[in-house]
């Protein structure tokens, strides 16, 4: 029903734009990762040295592994908080459902930076938590391991991604036809059995989507480590950032970025297949 001209008119501008401002930049990053820096200048000399450095120096692998550990912890904690919350809202909140849903969504609109900053003021050695503990006479010295540690990074990112993880899980739970739950009870399954055999399997696509989101975004985060992570909380994106900044080695930074990109895209590919396998619509 739509003419050729109509289709061309709507397709061409976004195609050109996305080609120029997304595809080309990503391609440039890929290209950079095969170039080199000589005497502080970028040379377009194709080589694999950057990747070689990456895998030869244990420090990069170490940071990458730590990053994945942190991202996995964030994912796990966000699920631990987000899934029961979504389950509660979808199945047990009764008439307050709409209001509570809004309450979960509001923090999504609250600045990332603001929330990170809030944690900084809470966890610091002269922060709210420490003065609270001293006020209660639980400690006399400030507890210093709170801020500037991987723990603080995990805490802050969990705080940020819990609502993100909540959303797809909640959507999946809301899409489970309620007669299925009734059918399960009708067939003699207790609440626990119904949850394990019907609700959980049917909410898996949402769970995977939420987990992927939390993992991928934590994986590439460089602000949380700068804000609350300290030296021990440094993540792979911080390495990239410093290579693009003070260290001035764009090709090596690009190579690490390409690696992150590779991990992210294969993860997306994998989870997309899993989501498809476990969605039964």
């Amino acid at each position: 029903m739509f003419s050729r001209a109509y289709k061309t008119l709507v397709s061409l501008p976004p195609l050109l734009w996305v080609g120029l401002f997304l595809l080309l930049p990503y391609a440039l990053m890929f290209a950079h990762s095969f170039w080199a820096v000589k005497d502080g200048l970028l040379v377009h000399q194709w080589n694999l040295d950057n990747y070689h450095t990456l895998f030869a120096k244990p420090v990069y692998i170490e940071v990458l592994l730590r990053t994945m550990r942190i991202a996995a912890s964030v994912t796990f904690c966000s699920l631990l908080l987000g899934y029961p919350l979504a389950y509660y809202l979808s199945f047990h909140s009764g008439g307050r459902k709409e209001l509570l849903y809004q309450l979960v969504v509001v923090p999504l609109w609250v600045s990332y930076l603001v929330r990170g900053y809030a944690w900084k003021t809470i966890l610091g050695s002269e922060g709210v938590l420490n003065s609270f503990l001293q006020y209660l006479h639980l400690t006399h010295e400030p507890v210093s391991f709170l801020l500037y540690s991987p723990f603080a990074v995990v805490l802050m990112l969990t705080h940020i991604y819990t609502p993100f993880v909540f959303l797809p899980i909640y959507a999946a739970l809301e899409h489970i036809p309620r007669p299925l739950v009734e059918a399960s009870q009708d067939l003699g399954a207790s609440s626990t059995q119904t949850f394990l055999r019907v609700i959980l399997p049917l909410s898996l696509p949402g769970l995977i989507a939420g987990a992927t989101f939390a993992f991928v975004l934590s994986l590439g985060d460089f602000l949380a480590p700068l804000l609350v992570g300290g030296a021990s909380g440094t993540m792979i994106a911080n390495v990239v950032q410093s290579l693009f900044g003070a260290a001035y080695d764009w090709p090596l930074g690009a190579a690490i970025s390409v690696c992150i990109l590779f991990v992210v895209i294969s993860l997306l590919f994998l989870t997309e297949r899993l989501e498809k396998r476990w969605s039964f619509k």
């Binding site: 401002f21 997304l22 930049p25 992927t212 975004l217 994106a237 970025s257 992210v264």
Partner: peptide, 17 residues
């Protein structure tokens, strides 16, 4: 892609561009 990709990747690509 920019929706799901860590911001640093998109940011750096555009910087290089």
């Amino acid at each position: 892609l920019p929706l799901i990709l860590p911001g640093i990747i998109t940011g750096l690509s555009l910087l290089m561009f």
